[in-house]
């Protein structure tokens, strides 16, 4: 049976990708941010997952505005990164696991989450920055990866509560897979940031830290907030925080905190990292 070894939250800010490509990790601006990922890398090496499910949003690489799926899952053998016009280095392709993907899609759809299935799917910075943060020190990606894209770009968006429920369905989907696979789930994006408008540069550290604590002990609090409220507090692009709830929903009610890290600012954003394990294994 497949099992979830834990969950990780991380930002997926393009500037992080540029800093990694430039080898700038030890510069004063970046040092504390990147140092906070070393415990995550050590934990990943210890639990040694076979598969990473990466919950992220596409920012206009794979999906244009002609078709915007609320929830989409990759069902391909490989996923390519490509030029998205932001000057990021294109990374090596990622291997998928089609049998596992289609199992997840079928289980989620049977649980009333009507996923869009993608047999070709370009993955953008939302997906590759987290992968590089975790594993760029290795010669090749040590896991098979499953992209799970949530629309956080064009409103109406799904809700925080629905994301938590998707996570719960994802747990059932993973744990009903017959093969022995160790699965890690990445909830990416956030934290508070607004890139656009006269309110650009908005960051709310207190709200970010409230979200961090909520994710650990009381995800229902974050799940109960409306999208308008989250936008007001966390900024228009800070709404990405709802994707963290997909990861959290896939874990048990009680979790152990392996690692907790917060840094600000990273580009225009607050950046939070959590590594959570199920309390009962």
């Amino acid at each position: 049976m497949a099992r979830i070894v834990g969950g990780v939250t991380t930002s997926h800010i393009p500037a992080i990708g540029l800093a990694m490509a430039g080898g700038n990790e030890n510069e004063p601006y970046w040092k504390r941010f990147f140092a906070g990922y070393e415990p995550v890398k050590e934990w990943l090496a210890k639990v040694d997952p076979d598969i990473a499910i990466v919950v992220y949003n596409d920012h206009g690489l794979n999906f244009f505005l002609d078709k915007v799926p609320t929830f989409a899952i990759g069902c391909a053998d490989h996923y390519e990164n490509a030029d998205e016009g932001w000057g990021l280095q294109t990374l090596a392709s990622f291997d998928g696991d089609v049998e596992f993907s289609w199992h997840l899609a079928e289980s989620l759809i049977n649980q009333d989450f009507d996923m869009t299935t993608c047999q070709e799917m370009l993955v953008d910075h939302g997906f590759i920055v987290p992968m590089a943060l975790m594993w760029r020190h290795l010669p090749e990606w040590p896991v098979q990866a499953i992209p799970l894209a949530v629309n956080t770009v064009q409103h109406p968006l799904t809700s925080a509560r629905r994301c938590l429920a998707l996570g719960k369905a994802l747990q059932k989907a993973v744990e009903s897979y017959p093969d022995d696979k160790k699965v890690v789930i990445f909830g990416t994006g956030g934290m508070s940031h607004q890139l656009q408008g006269e309110r650009a540069g908005h960051i709310d550290v207190d709200f970010d830290l409230q979200c961090m604590e909520s994710l650990i002990t009381d995800p229902e609090w974050l799940a109960g907030l409306s999208n308008s409220h989250i936008i007001e507090k966390a900024g228009t692009e800070g709404i990405e925080i709802i994707m963290w709830l997909v990861m959290r929903g896939a874990l048990q009610a009680n979790v152990n905190v392996v690692h907790k890290h917060y840094h600000v600012p990273v580009s225009n954003c607050g950046a939070g990292v959590l590594v959570l394990e199920n309390a009962e294994n």
Binding site: L65, Q154, E198, S228, E232
Partner: peptide, 22 residues
Amino acid sequence: KHDYDDIPGTYVFDGETSHSGY
């Protein structure tokens, strides 16, 4: 109309905006 219309300095990208900017 939406609750988020009143957040100052903020342009929420919704159906109305997406249609006008397609």
